[in-house]
Amino acid sequence: MSLSESLPLLLAALVTEAAIGYPARLFAWIGHPVTWIGGLIAWLDRSLNRESASFAVRRMAGVAALLILLGVTLAAALALVALCRLAGVLALLPLALLASTLLAQRSLHDHVADVAAGLERDGLAGGRKAVSMIVGRDPESLDEAGVARAAIESLAENFSDGVVAPAFWLGAGGLPGGALYKAINTADSMIGHKHPRHLAFGWAAARLDDLVNLPASRLTALLLIAAAALDRNADAGTAWRAVRRDAQRHRSPNAGWPEAAMAGALGLRLAGPRVYGSVRVEDGWMGDGRAEATAADIRRALTLYRRACLFLWGLAAAGSLAALAL
């Protein structure tokens, strides 16, 4: 797809997903593209990841699995684009509906807002229950401030890889570009971790995910800084300084950028040492503000997130006009 097609598609997808999300009844009926991709990844894992094989063989099997995943995803996306184009000038509508399923603006907002509501309504127990739906760490190890920080960290990181990154690749490559990104990101979440079973097999997925998220993580930080500049309850200058100082300290090559921007903008300290299961993970602190975050800080983070999403819409609109004018 050309930029004159993909950028208007991106804008339409962003607006569509924010307006209607992904209906729960539809999910119950047919699942979601991510669950379909996940099913293929699970099958490839069962079929190709032989525990009796050597490390090198399992790494090559992981490369092969990733290539199969990307090939199937690309073929399906191209077929859907061809099918939608049969609608002629109305093709943008079904394409936007399909592309909207690759974005998570609305669901991310709602899940994080549930954590704030849980803390406000039911205290620590309610916050822990809600945050367990969006983070991988042990919620029982978190106090109220830890729950609030975890929710804000999840909002920042998932704004990058659940919204900005798929939007970036939708804009760059249309539905095929967005679908390929989502396949890579889902593979990383399923097999890209350092568990013994996936240390070799998931190596290719993890490295490719790091690569394709590089531009979006930096763009996300800039969007949050821009949003902070228009928010009297946030500080764009501190956000910029936090990104420059702290983003590289994060154990992830990408997550530190949006987390540092969010921390600086809100005057908080995010990331740092955390517990996943029974394993303590040492990580650098993002920002130099207070660590005692609250439900009110989650609400402030959500306001910043909504403003940043509008800036993303603005970029998509400006890009669309520029591409159509060429």
Results as ranks from 00 to 15, higher is better:
113 A>F: 06
190 M>Q: 07
57 V>R: 15
107 S>R: 13
129 K>R: 15
221 A>K: 07
186 T>Y: 01
28 A>Q: 11
264 G>Y: 03
92 L>Y: 15
323 A>E: 10
76 A>T: 11
192 G>M: 07
229 A>S: 10
84 C>G: 07
117 A>Y: 06
273 P>V: 12
192 G>R: 09
102 L>V: 08
61 A>C: 03
218 R>G: 14
114 D>E: 15
254 N>R: 09
28 A>I: 00
233 N>R: 04
240 W>V: 02
178 G>I: 03
153 E>F: 10
25 R>M: 15
148 A>P: 09
143 D>H: 10
121 R>N: 12
271 A>W: 00
228 A>F: 05
97 L>A: 12
70 L>C: 11
263 A>I: 03
115 V>R: 02
267 G>N: 04
257 W>P: 00
113 A>Q: 14
46 R>N: 14
114 D>A: 15
9 L>S: 07
116 A>F: 07
91 A>Y: 08
242 A>K: 01
222 L>Y: 11
269 R>Y: 01
41 I>T: 10
145 A>E: 08
44 L>E: 08
146 G>I: 01
298 I>W: 01
143 D>P: 13
198 H>I: 00
51 E>G: 14
45 D>W: 11
197 R>V: 08
281 V>S: 03
257 W>I: 00
314 G>L: 09
249 R>H: 13
2 S>Y: 00
78 L>P: 01
259 E>T: 00
59 R>V: 10
312 L>A: 13
208 L>D: 05
306 R>K: 13
256 G>Y: 01
2 S>C: 08
159 F>W: 00
256 G>C: 02
147 V>W: 05
299 R>T: 05
206 A>W: 02
118 G>T: 10
321 L>I: 13
280 R>I: 15
257 W>G: 00
232 R>H: 13
300 R>P: 01
80 L>N: 08
1 M>A: 12
107 S>G: 11
67 L>R: 09
134 I>E: 02
109 H>K: 13
24 A>I: 03
195 H>K: 15
233 N>T: 03
42 A>D: 12
7 L>K: 13
110 D>W: 08
173 G>N: 09
148 A>R: 06
289 G>I: 04
307 R>L: 08
280 R>M: 15
305 Y>C: 05
239 A>E: 01
263 A>G: 07
99 A>T: 01
174 G>C: 07
245 R>M: 12
278 S>V: 05
1 M>K: 11
75 A>L: 06
108 L>T: 05
92 L>A: 14
251 R>W: 13
108 L>M: 06
263 A>M: 05
105 Q>C: 11
196 P>L: 04
143 D>K: 06
18 A>S: 15
322 A>D: 09
136 G>I: 09
320 S>K: 05
132 S>L: 09
204 A>W: 06
